[in-house]
Computed example of a mutant assay.
Amino acid sequence: MSNIILLFLCIALGALLRKGKILPENGHVALNAFVINISLAALCLFYIPKIEFDLKLIFPVAVAWLNIFSAILLFTFAGKKFGWNKSLIGAVIMCAGFGNTSFVGIPVISALYGNEGLKTVMLVDQPGSFVALSTVGIAVVNFYSGSHSSAGEILKKIIRFPPFITFLLAIFLNIFQFHVPEVLDDVLSKLGATTVPLALVSVGSQLRFESPGPYTKPLAAGLLFKLIFFPLIIFILYCLILKQNGEVIEISLMEAAMAPMITSAILASSHDLEPKLCNLFIGIGIPLSLLTLTLWYLVLQQL
C-alpha cells in the first residue's frame, strides 16, 4: 500500500512543484538525466548479476520488440487508410510503439510485485525498450522526418549510453558469476532506490492536459492500441497460445500495457513529428494508463 501512495504522491508533487515554479519549467530534464544515467544504471548492476537466466526470460525482452513492429505494421496501413500525413503516422508509431517501461514501469511493478519484480523490468527495459528505441526508433524518426543517421552513428549512440554500458557489465558479471562486494552492492541499492521517486516527480512535472482538437482520432487510435490492444496481443500470444504463466509473464504483460514512453515522444518531437500530439500522448496516456493497468492487473489475478 505504501508503494501505491508513493506513486500518486510523487506524481502530484511533480505537478505542484512545476505549478508553484519551485521546479524550473525544464527541471525534468535534469531529473531524467539523473534517473537514466545514474539510477537505472545502478539498478542494472544491482539486479541483473543476480538473475538466473533461462529461456522464459526471452518473453519480457520480446515485449518491446513486438510492440514497435506491430505498431509499424498497424499504423503504416491505418495511416494511409485514414489519410494521415507522413509526420502524423511517424508520431503515432513512435508514441504507441514504445512503452514507459522505466519511468512508469518501475514504480508500478515495484508497487505490485515488490523489488524482486524489478529484475524482469530491467530485461524489458534494457535489451528490450532501450535497444529497440536506439535502433528501430531512430530509423522510424529518420524515415518519417526525412532526416538520416548512418548505421555508425546509431551504433555510437548505443555504445556510449551509460545504462547500456552498465547492462553489458552486469551481463558479464552474471555470466562469470562474479559477486559484487556487499558494501558496493549496498551503494548500488541506495542509488537504485532513487529511481522511483525521481522518475515519478519527473512524470508529474511533465503532465499537460490540453484539448486534443484535430488530433483526437490519431490520439485515440494510438492509446487504444497501446493500452488495450497490444497487451491483449501479448495476453493471447503468451498465455493462451504459448501456455505461459507465472510472475515473469504477468510482469511482461503489465509492461506491455504501460503508457507511451516519454523518451520516444521526445525523440519524435525533436524531429518535428507533430510535437503537440506527442505531448498529448504523454499528458493523457500516463494518467489513463493507471486505470487500464489496474484493470489488466485484476484480469491477471483471475488466472
Results as ranks from 00 to 15, higher is better:
residue 236 I to G: 06
residue 90 G to M: 02
residue 99 G to W: 03
residue 96 A to D: 00
residue 121 V to C: 09
residue 204 G to P: 03
residue 161 F to H: 11
residue 84 W to L: 07
residue 147 S to F: 04
residue 282 I to A: 01
residue 282 I to Y: 07
residue 301 Q to D: 15
residue 225 F to K: 14
residue 202 S to V: 15
residue 270 S to Q: 15
residue 114 G to F: 09
residue 70 S to G: 03
residue 281 F to A: 08
residue 162 P to F: 01
residue 86 K to T: 10
residue 153 E to T: 12
residue 15 A to K: 12
residue 235 F to H: 05
residue 211 S to A: 14
residue 265 A to I: 08
residue 257 A to H: 12
residue 129 S to R: 05
residue 65 W to R: 02
residue 193 A to D: 14
residue 247 E to P: 00
residue 8 F to W: 05
residue 79 G to A: 11
residue 211 S to H: 11
residue 155 L to R: 07
residue 206 Q to R: 07
residue 78 A to Q: 04
residue 251 I to Y: 06
residue 215 Y to I: 09
residue 113 Y to G: 01
residue 31 L to R: 03
residue 261 M to G: 01
residue 60 P to F: 04
residue 156 K to Y: 11
residue 188 L to C: 05
residue 294 T to S: 04
residue 56 K to Y: 06
residue 281 F to T: 01
residue 78 A to V: 14
residue 260 P to Y: 08
residue 273 L to H: 13
residue 209 F to L: 05
residue 273 L to V: 11
residue 235 F to L: 07
residue 209 F to N: 02
residue 84 W to F: 14
residue 38 I to M: 09
residue 114 G to P: 07
residue 65 W to N: 02
residue 148 H to E: 11
residue 162 P to H: 04
residue 194 T to W: 08
residue 162 P to K: 03
residue 194 T to R: 05
residue 277 L to H: 07
residue 86 K to Y: 08
residue 185 D to A: 13
residue 192 G to Q: 01
residue 115 N to H: 11
residue 293 L to D: 01
residue 173 L to F: 15
residue 218 P to Y: 02
residue 195 T to L: 14
